[in-house]
Design a protein around this nucleic acid. Structure first.
Lengths: 131, 131
DNA sequence: ATAGCTGCAAAATGTTTGCGCGAAA
DNA sequence: TTTCGCGCAAACATTTTGCAGCTAT
């Protein structure tokens, strides 16, 4: 893979964002630093980086676009269906699951997408104070 | 909610399909039985049925469309990245997770999307016999 | 020198929506 | 008879792609 300033910027932008940004969000933030950047380039690099496992990908956010994650280790996500926030969470029981699945079904797990949907603490508090 | 023959047919079609069909697949199967059926109606009813919890929804299939599931109880999915097959699996450790999450973070889990991606038994066997 | 990446714009894909008609209550 | 759902087609949002020029190696 050849180096490109665009790819470096895109990767940097994802890593610095805490919100699990979409392609569009990554584009508009990165474009501030490199106004010539094009959206097609963002998409091409997101595909590349996530294929290489350098960034994470979250398809099940519930809005209609893919979100990206600067972390590339295995972890889970909490998606609030009220405010749309996405947060990381570690679930220690998970590593054991893969081998259990392999034993039971012969399916070889190489990656997860584990999303728990519901109401985040902030939205729950907000709802309570309203009632 | 008012009864409609279309909705009944759509629900029936999903329940009879073992493959976790997409809207397009549901449409073309159902259209065989009701040629006047329109794709917009399929989408409207899928939104309705999954909002009511009568069918399941799978966003993280890896192809670029939403898949639906005749089962509406909580279970997990195995998505083969080689052949695209989607299969159900029960993971008994999961019910405990929700309360653990709530205790740790205050997040109230109302639904899951738990997808394990990798190579299914059939594709693994196929790869082995080729090498 | 050349392979690969970019910007641009057009196209493709999957999904949603407005409207006027027909069917259920 | 009134309300809701339907079929149709247009609109929409997101993502992908072809091309010609530029950049890293």
């Amino acid at each position: 893979m050849k180096y490109s300033r665009q790819r470096e910027l895109i990767l940097e932008t994802i890593r610095q964002s805490p919100i699990h940004p979409t392609a569009e969000e990554i584009y508009s933030r990165a474009k501030e630093k490199m106004p010539s950047l094009s959206l097609g380039t963002v998409y091409r690099n997101l595909a590349l980086l996530s294929e290489l496992g350098m960034i994470g990908k979250l398809e099940a956010s519930g809005d209609h676009s893919v979100h990206y994650d600067g972390r590339n280790d295995e972890h889970c996500h909490l998606v609030c269906t009220k405010c749309g926030s996405i947060n990381d969470i570690e679930l220690d029981t998970l590593p054991t699951i893969d081998s259990a699945v392999a034993r039971k079904t012969g399916f070889i797990v190489t990656e997860h997408e584990i999303v728990l949907k519901g109401t985040c603490a902030a939205c729950a508090a907000h709802a309570k104070s309203e009632s």
